[in-house]
Amino acid sequence: MFSLIRGAWTVLLHMFHRRVTVQYPDAKAYVPPRWRGRIILSRDPDGGERCVACYLCAVACPVDCIALQATEDENGRRYPEFFRINFSRCIFCGFCEEACPTYAIQLTTDYEMGEYKRSSLVYEKEDLLISGTGKYPGYNFYRVAGLAISGKDKGEAKDEEPPVDVKSLLP
């Protein structure tokens, strides 16, 4: 009898405690900016696709859930022809982001990805590509690479000398 009253009393006291339960989805928990959530593909400051289809994210992925195919535009700029992430396999480890040499692939703070069908968790490039630079503003891979693309000729990248004149013998 006494234990029943004690139990009721404890419950009653809890009414005056601070609430731990968050009223999701009306209220949302704090997510740190480095949270490893839904993966996106970003664009460089000029608006071009950052991904150069180097396959490093795919090979770094421990569950092999990234598949892509490289292709090139007429000026030699490489980009993915398709880029697919199977989120039903993804473990959000962030290795892809770490491997990415161009800051293209990034993990975001979004975690609300529940679906009724597994196949809806397969994201193609159009689902992944955002219009901004994401977490890393300013970086533009092709401005530091030696490859010539449209709008950036040989010798115009950062820290490059103009192309060598092969016919000159001057020092």
Binding site: C61, D64, C65, R84, S88, S119, V122
Partner: peptide, 15 residues
């Protein structure tokens, strides 16, 4: 041994 994309390459057809 580093072959990539096993779980994504066919995912557009079947997961």
């Amino acid at each position: 041994h580093r072959y990539s994309g096993r779980t994504a390459m066919h995912a557009n057809i079947s997961v």
